[in-house]
């Protein structure tokens, strides 16, 4: 289970998250949508402490962290949390000096201290799962954006995380490459992977998510199953945001 309570985060004097509460059951998929600058990325990065919240409580699996202003998170705690989370970045961030399979082996070898051969075997399984078994020995720069992002998903899966975090996984891709990445994510959802996905793809959100959060100005303004949030929003701001998106999509 993933849970946050009263999460606050500021950059200098700019308060970006103004008290966020949410809970996500195991095996469920949560989509986070909202206008640019509303704090979606910041919220997502709080789940694996790439941003350290100023205040609030974060629970991932069995680990709970309590944040207070001025209290530093110890590296040990951060590492323990990150071993339970995987992240997929907008710009892939594969390790360019390693082949596809080495990228996927890295966490197993260096973090989990698994043997090279066990790691390689698991990495090969994950490569097959994202449909790239034949690209094991390719370097990232030899692969298309869509292929790189699928490798990045496999890399994030390699630590067997409690939850996978996605930050607009397809927004850096050419339109014709978006489908192959979304397909992999849908397959993971079908397999019962717990996921939190920041996305601008409303149709995808409606398809894959069990729940949707709509953020604006650092707070959650709408929350619920996709059919409620996307098709029958309550607040004026939510209606305005969704209408604007709809007019772009046509």
């Amino acid at each position: 289970m993933i849970e946050i309570r009263n999460l606050h985060k500021s950059f200098g004097s700019l308060e970006v998250l103004k008290g966020i509460d949410m809970t996500l059951e195991r095996g469920k998929v949560l989509a986070i949508i909202g206008p640019s600058g509303s704090g979606k990325t910041t919220l997502l990065r709080c789940f694996n402490l790439l941003e350290v919240p100023d205040r609030g409580i974060l629970t991932v699996g069995k680990q709970t962290l309590d944040f207070e202003a001025g209290k530093k998170v110890r590296e040990k705690e951060a590492v323990a949390l990150r071993k339970q989370t995987g992240m997929v970045f907008q710009s892939f961030n594969l390790f360019p000096h390693q082949t596809a399979i080495e990228n996927i082996m890295e966490a197993q070898v260096t973090v989990q201290k698994k043997s090279k051969s066990d790691s390689r075997q698991r990495a090969a399984e994950l490569l097959a799962k994202v449909g790239l078994a034949d690209k094991a020995e390719f370097y990232p720069h030899q692969l298309s954006g869509g292929q790189q992002q699928r490798i990045a998903i496999a890399r994030a899966m390699a630590v067997d995380p409690e939850v996978l975090l996605f930050d607009e996984p397809t927004s850096a891709l050419d339109p014709q490459l978006v489908g192959e990445v979304l397909k992999v994510i849908k397959q993971l959802a079908a397999d019962g992977m717990t996921m939190i996905i920041v996305t601008h793809e409303m149709k995808f959100a409606a398809d894959v998510a069990d729940r949707v959060i709509l953020m604006d100005g650092g707070v959650i303004i709408e929350e619920g199953p996709p059919e409620n949030v996307l098709e029958n929003p309550q607040s004026a701001r939510a209606i305005q945001f969704l209408n604007r998106l709809a007019s772009y999509e046509i």
Binding site: N48, E106, T110, V111, A156
Partner: peptide
């Protein structure tokens, strides 16, 4: 690029592991 540190941290590396396995090999080039 900062994204390399973040990717290394996101898979559970310590600062030292990120340096040794991800940053220094690229910096060497």
């Amino acid at each position: 690029h900062k994204g390399q540190w973040e990717a290394a941290y996101s898979i559970g590396m310590t600062r030292w592991q990120a340096l040794r396995r991800v940053i220094l090999p690229q910096a060497a080039r």
